[in-house]
Amino acid sequence: MKLTVIIPTLGRSEQVARLLRYLSGQTRLPDEIILSAPDATHVELPESCPFPVSLVFGPKGLAAQRNSALARALGRSDIITFFDDDFVPSAEYLEQIERAFAENDGWAVVMGMVVRDGATNAGLTWEAAEAALREAEGKEHDGPPVVDHIGAYGCNMSLRSSLVGDLRFDERLVLYGWQEDIDFTSQMRSKGRVVCVTSITGVHLGLKTGRVSGERFGYSQVVNAIYLIKKGSVPASFALPLMFRNIAANLAKSLRPEPYVDRRGRLRGNMLAILHVAMGRIEPEYILKI
Rank of each mutant, 00 (worst) to 15 (best):
Y153D: 14
F101C: 03
V146L: 09
G138S: 07
E103L: 15
Y93H: 12
E180T: 10
L175W: 02
L133N: 03
D85Y: 09
I182M: 04
H149I: 13
W126K: 07
E180R: 00
G154C: 07
M111K: 11
I97W: 04
H141Q: 14
M157W: 09
A128H: 07
A102L: 10
R134C: 02
G118V: 12
L94V: 06
E130A: 02
C155Q: 13
A119E: 10
L133W: 08
E98I: 02
R168K: 01
A129D: 11
Y176H: 11
G138C: 01
T120L: 15
A102D: 07
R160M: 04
P144D: 04
F83R: 09
Q96F: 08
Y153Q: 14
V110C: 02
I182F: 05
L163R: 08
D181G: 06
H149E: 14
T120M: 13
Q187A: 06
P145D: 15
D105K: 11
P89S: 08
F82L: 13
P145I: 12
A108K: 10
S158Q: 11
T81C: 10
D85T: 14
T185N: 06
L173Y: 01
A102V: 10
M157P: 05
S186L: 11
R160D: 04
D166M: 04
A128N: 04
N121K: 14
I97H: 03
G143E: 12
L175V: 15
V110Q: 08
A129T: 02
F169K: 03
M111F: 00
R168C: 01
R116P: 12
E98T: 00
A102C: 07
D166G: 07
V164Q: 00
D86F: 12
F101K: 13
R134N: 11
A129V: 01
L173A: 02
W107P: 08
A102H: 07
V110F: 09
A119R: 15
D105F: 08
D142F: 14
G143W: 04
V88N: 00
V164T: 05
G106E: 10
L173P: 01
S162H: 09
A131T: 01
F82H: 02
V109F: 12
V88E: 01
E92S: 07
M111S: 11
D148L: 13
N156I: 15
E130S: 03
R168W: 00
S162W: 05
